[in-house]
Write a protein that binds this DNA or RNA. Structure first.
Lengths: 141, 141
DNA sequence: GATTAAAGGTCAAAGAAGGTCAAAGAGGGA
DNA sequence: TCCCTCTTTGACCTTCTTTGACCTTTAATC
């Protein structure tokens, strides 16, 4: 059974991410399309079907000259900032302090905020967020 | 990943400011343009897109002989950022994209997060938050 | 004071990405 | 075969960047 073009691109991206120390890569849509000899929108298709937030990835893009597509893997290793944040929010939700929709919203927002920050600030912002959320919940928000 | 000319100039200016004790620098448009081998208006472009008041800078200029461009980093005006964030969230809620409880929660959390940040990153984090929230809402969260 | 040179300002056009969406194609299963 | 889903393509859109021609302001010079 022949692998689809989409799967090929998917694998390729995943290898790139695996090889990166940071779990984050930047690609150019046209370049990747050229590599696979396909139209650029094919890359968009792969990103939307296999690198969604539910799949554990954050995708940020920039248009114009020197534009890029940045893909960040939200890793599951303990000690990882993103993972810590997710576990924290899960705990909070388990205590019925947040509704599911609220939890999902906060996860989505904070992971996206974090993806755009250099690591040294990400930690700080996440910690500030956790403190702020605790404070909010304690006040009987 | 190659950076755009605009980003390069942006970073260069930010380094100059960081190195200055006063948080204020003076440059000459033509000189900077020559440094980056580009047209002078490119510098104007960078200033208008990345050194606006919203971004936390004040730009003053003087034409004629011995003209200059003075860029001042504003560090105290953090209250405006809060106001802006609150207005943004109010607008979002007015569009019925967030429930009142959610809006209040986000306001409380983000103001607290912001309070713990050095002014120069607060703007960045708030902007990232706004972008992340928009992204979340667009996906039909 | 008038003139000229030396800045910076503006704006629109061209260029360089990525985004979107719908239509056509390909496979697999009932 | 017929359908349904996933994939592939391409036309067209939006956003951000780069460049250049032309304008305005200010200082220096005559």
């Amino acid at each position: 059974m022949k692998k689809s073009l989409a799967s090929g691109i998917e694998q390729y991206i995943k290898v790139l991410i695996a090889r990166s120390e940071s779990g984050q890569i930047e690609i150019q849509r046209v370049e990747l399309a050229e590599t696979f000899a396909c139209v650029p929108s094919q890359v968009s298709y792969v990103l939307s079907t296999r690198f969604s937030q539910e799949d554990g990835y954050i995708v940020e893009t920039r248009r114009g000259g020197q534009g890029y597509i940045r893909i960040t893997e939200v890793r599951k290793e303990t000690g990882n900032l993103d993972d810590k944040l997710l576990r924290f929010l899960n705990e909070v939700q388990a205590k019925k302090l947040l509704k599911p929709r609220e939890t999902e919203m906060l996860k989505s927002i904070m992971l996206n905020v974090g993806a755009g920050l250099p690591a040294e600030y990400k930690s700080r912002v996440y910690q500030g967020f956790a403190a702020a959320l605790r404070k909010y919940l304690n006040k009987g928000g």
